[in-house]
Design a protein around this nucleic acid. Structure first.
Lengths: 252, 252
DNA sequence: GACCTCGGTTGCGTATGTTGCAACGACTGT
DNA sequence: ACAGTCGTTGCAACATACGCAACCGAGGTC
């Protein structure tokens, strides 16, 4: 809708990848470099980018500032923090907290595992719904109509041999997830990692977010992963309690 | 330079404070609401903003995503992380990592203290150079000419009775900081808090960032604070080593 | 040391994108 | 049912942001 803004935001994405030079950026988004220069200058005034030397542009501090304000306002993150940190400390595995946004999963918090298997995830990163344990938990929690609508309109790219690739299979899986109260990603997203996830609920029993544990397959086989489910559920229950949830359903 | 972009970025700042309604935002930046709507839509497409219901706008996930990419690229933060986390765990006090940017201090990392005295700081937040321990460390590390230039062109608002308010006093303080190798903020920024800070150095001995500990005065008197200096310096030394610094100065 | 290239910067005229307006529509609460 | 509030749309006028081309300044090469 707004051209210059649109271009500026695209610029930010490019710069985020790593520090770029001017014509480089101009070429990338297909506009004249003078245009890019003006946009960058405005971004710089607002501290969204900073110059490194003369050549290079990097993301600036306004970015962190706003992001942290935003994170603070997401209260599930705060209320779930102690329980998830404890889970992470106890098991040593990577723990994620994620929520649904616009047809995708967004990671809103992450506790790095002790085993330094670098996972390609990051707070703020988005991931597909069909091949992540958190995605399944979040969609399974929606009203049946919405769930169906989303499942039918999604794409199902096969990222590994195990990825679910049809709406029918996905809906069946969601039904299972709803019944069991947790979800599994059996190497459906990345070949060498499998995950389990469970919901964090709020005062009205609604699902606020999903918490997951991700474990490299070399560290723990499928059975071993499933054995962690009670541990995960203990943590999500504690997180739910801190988010206003009460055992006996809705209280009003 | 670019009007629409400028307005959009201002919008983001307003939204960050807390979720706002449309005309509210329009009034705040003094433009027609239809204009605001269009800008917000573009921001929304890029996930910089998300709608909550229809009325309210919140910061979106692109914010976190970019911010975390940016933070990852700041390598002092990564390399200092273990030492500072340990310092924080050991003492229970709030630890900050900060760097210099455009006449101000920017916090690039924070480890919350155990004693929940809510300090008004946040990763990405900016603070003045003249009344913070980290500010003193960072400016003291600059070349004399630059140091003088900055000291002379700064403003010296008196935030507490202890705040340094003249360039002369500030320059004298910097000299002391350079000599001692650490800086103190004796309730010069906030009445009830005092801090100590020390530099984190890189491969060429240059100061990459400053690390600080902030302690409420009720918890520890001035003498007690100074007693923590060796502890802090141990941590910054460790952080420096992990950032490529070597004891015996420049190695090339 | 002079030349050349590459990248950043500037001024300017034009057209394009953006703006404000006013009318519409959806929703809330009384 | 009505009034008020807030979000949304189409349109025409204008200002703004655009691309161009020429100008610098620095780094590298011969």
């Amino acid at each position: 809708m707004s051209q210059s803004l649109d271009r500026a935001l695209t610029l930010l994405n490019s710069i985020a990848k790593d520090a770029r030079t001017l014509d480089d950026l101009a070429a990338e988004i297909g506009v004249h470099k003078s245009t890019v220069l003006r946009l960058l200058r405005t971004l710089e005034q607002h501290h969204f980018v900073r110059r490194e030397g003369t050549r290079y542009y990097r993301l600036g501090s306004a970015m962190f500032d706003l992001a942290n304000q935003a994170l603070d306002s997401i209260d599930v993150r705060r209320s779930a923090q102690p329980a998830l940190a404890a889970l992470n400390a106890r098991t040593g595995h990577t723990v994620h907290l994620a929520s649904y946004d616009d047809g995708e999963v967004v990671y809103i918090d992450k506790y790095e595992g002790r085993h330094s298997v670098r996972m390609y995830s990051r707070v703020g990163k988005r991931a597909p719904l069909h091949c992540t344990a958190v995605g399944k938990v979040l969609v399974a929690a929606m009203a049946p109509a919405r769930r169906e609508e989303i499942a039918r309109s999604m794409k199902y790219p096969a990222l590994t041999p195990n990825t679910i690739t049809t709406p029918e299979a996905y809906l069946a899986e969601l039904e299972r997830v709803g019944r069991l109260g947790y979800a599994v990603d059996n190497a459906e997203h990345e070949d060498f990692i499998h995950c389990i996830a469970a919901p964090v609920r709020g005062a009205d029993g609604e699902v606020l977010a999903a918490a997951s544990m991700s474990v490299p397959k070399v560290l723990l086989d499928y059975e071993g992963l499933l054995a962690l489910v009670p541990d995960l559920r203990a943590a999500t229950t504690e997180a739910s309690v801190h988010s206003g949830w009460t055992e006996n359903g809705k209280g009003h």
